[in-house]
Each structure stands twice: as structure tokens, then as C-alpha cells.
């Protein structure tokens, strides 16, 4: 698989801001059986505050995948998330993503291409909510079974 490093630095601009409903946060909390009083319905000051990892549910990675059909869809190999401002019900989250790195390595399933895509989440007040570095792995076509293995 050819690694096209010229994509490094390419920016995928945000689509329309995504509205955060109270229901979506509450459903996420219910799914995770979140009992921490800081999150969900009983957030401070009557606000409905999302747990930190709710941030990873926002993504425009499809735009990147559409741009690189030769790589295929790939698998999630890991994430690095930095949290700045909590997400609250009523927020509108915008996303911008940039390709930070592309490199090859070999692992248990053969040669793999790794792509690091950084998404920056911004709320309607212009505050940076989080940086989410997605690490995608794309296997070469001859890879063995268990395609989601990353080592």
C-alpha cells in the first residue's frame, strides 16, 4: 500500500454545528450507567453535563475516509483526547480535522498504515471543548485474520 504523506496538513473543515440535546446526554449516561452526580441530569446548577468521553461521539472522520478511498475504511487503533470545557445540553459543537501524521509499521497482522487525524471540537461560544486525535490503522491487503488487531 502506497503511503501518501502529502496528505499531512490537509484540513477537513467543519460541517454544520451539531446540537447537543439533553436527551442525547442522558441516553449516553444511562448506557454507561453513569452514577457520578457531576454528570447527566443532576449536573451542577441544574445543567445537564456530559461525561468527558461523550466528546468522542463527535466526528467528521467520514470526510477523511471519503477523501482516501484507496486506504479503505480502516480500524480505530486508539485515541488521544484532551478535555478543555465540558459539553452541556444546548451546546452546538463544530468540528475541524487535520491530518497530523501518516506512517507505516509492522505488527501481528502484517504491514499497517497509521493515520493520525486531529479533530478540534469548538462550542457556540468559540471555546475549544476538546482535541481528539484519532489513530486509524489500515491493513495491507495481504493481512491475516483478525483485521482489528493493531499489534
Amino acid at each position: 500500500m502506497a503511503v501518501d504523506r502529502s496528505l499531512i496538513g490537509k484540513v477537513f473543515e467543519a460541517t454544520a454545528p451539531m446540537a447537543v440535546s439533553a436527551e442525547s446526554i442522558i441516553e449516553f449516561c444511562r448506557t454507561m450507567e453513569e452514577h457520578n452526580p457531576r454528570y447527566g441530569k443532576s449536573g451542577a446548577n441544574g445543567e445537564i453535563v456530559a461525561p468527558p468521553s461523550f466528546a468522542v461521539t463527535f466526528r467528521n472522520t467520514d470526510a477523511f475516509f471519503r477523501f482516501t478511498p484507496q486506504l479503505g475504511r480502516g480500524f480505530d487503533a486508539g485515541k488521544e483526547v484532551e478535555f478543555f470545557v465540558p459539553i452541556r445540553a444546548g451546546d452546538e459543537i463544530s468540528l475541524t480535522s487535520i491530518v497530523r501524521d501518516i506512517y507505516e509499521k509492522t505488527g501481528r497482522t502484517g504491514t499497517m498504515t497509521f493515520v493520525i487525524l486531529r479533530s478540534t471540537l469548538t462550542n457556540q461560544r468559540g471555546e475549544t471543548v476538546a482535541h481528539v486525535d484519532h489513530r486509524f490503522v489500515h491493513r495491507n491487503p495481504a493481512a491475516k485474520e483478525n483485521p482489528a488487531e493493531t499489534e
Partner: peptide, 26 residues
């Protein structure tokens, strides 16, 4: 894993600043 950490922090003032994960296997 985030919840493991935020449950450990509890309801006080500490906050999760960053988490990084590597998915080594399915």
C-alpha cells in the same frame, strides 16, 4: 476506562484532563 478514572475522582473538584488509549487487540 474514562469512567474508571472519573469514578475514582468522584464528585469532587478533580477533573479528567486527558486520556489516551491504544487498542492492541479486538
Amino acid at each position: 476506562l474514562s469512567k474508571l478514572v472519573t469514578d475514582w475522582i468522584g464528585s469532587g473538584g478533580g477533573h479528567l484532563k486527558r486520556i489516551g488509549t491504544t487498542y492492541r487487540s479486538m
